[in-house]
Write a protein that binds this DNA or RNA. Structure first.
Length: 229
DNA sequence: GCGACAG
DNA sequence: ATCTTGTCGC
């Protein structure tokens, strides 16, 4: 993605949104799931970021592969245009994997997006991978607060259509905003996320990916400390 | 014009 | 997302 204006970015999203498939198109039996996440540098290395991908065996959560990529931040954070900021490096991280991925869990929105093309959908369409958007807060849409117990959910509506599911993944915690990215249906997305949630609010793939990039960022801090002392 | 706004 | 200490609640 070369330098692009925000208007060009929005136009591109409207075009690519037509490629999104909302029917389940992953292996009948899922073998592996992949969690993706990004982290940014604080002081010292302004303008740098890290992307990480972790491949886990479905249900046992054994880590069978992982990859990290580092680089310059290519685009500012603009609500609705997150993919132009995080997708490039996430794709690099994916390229570093050796194990096959059946389903990807992305931090952010899928079709629960102003143009129905959030980061999870963009990543899915570009790679062809089935993907699910797992956002910790709402980007768009209206909903009723789901019940307080694990598994409770309510539809996320926008413009008269259902674009996702507000899902409680643990008793008493804030709900997650789940939406199909690509090749996953509106009904399957929350079921798959819940199947990946145990003791934590975030699904295991997402949680492990966050762990990975956080650990990598700690190395930056060490390097900066050594260089400064 | 005002408020909202993934990470 | 990141900057930050202690602290309120299950």
């Amino acid at each position: 993605m070369e330098p692009i204006s925000t208007e060009q970015a929005r136009t591109l999203q409207r075009e690519l949104a037509r490629e999104v498939l909302l029917d389940d198109a992953f292996p009948g039996r899922i073998e592996t799931v992949c969690g993706l996440d990004c982290s940014y540098s604080g002081r010292g290395r302004r303008g740098r970021m890290i992307a990480g991908a972790v491949v886990l065996r479905f249900r046992t959560w054994e880590r069978i592969d992982s990859s990290v990529a580092e680089g310059e931040i290519p685009f500012p954070y603009v609500p609705g245009l997150l993919s132009f900021r995080e997708l490039p490096l996430l794709l690099e991280a994916l390229e570093g994997l050796k194990e096959p991925v059946d389903l990807a869990f992305v931090d952010g929105a899928g079709i629960a997006h102003p143009r129905r093309f959030g980061l999870a959908s963009h990543l899915g369409v570009v790679t062809g991978l089935p993907s699910i958007g797992v956002a910790k807060s709402r980007l768009c849409g209206v909903y009723d607060e789901p019940g307080p117990e694990r598994g409770a959910s309510s539809p996320l509506l926008e413009g008269g259509e259902t674009v996702g599911t507000v899902l409680r993944t643990r008793d008493g915690v804030r709900p997650l905003f789940i939406s199909p990215g690509h090749k996953v249906s509106l009904a399957s997305a929350p079921r798959l996320v819940l199947a990946c949630c145990g003791r934590y609010r975030l699904p295991e793939p997402t949680r492990r990916a966050h762990e990975l990039v956080t650990a990598r960022r700690a190395v930056w801090k060490e390097d900066d400390r050594d260089a400064t002392s």
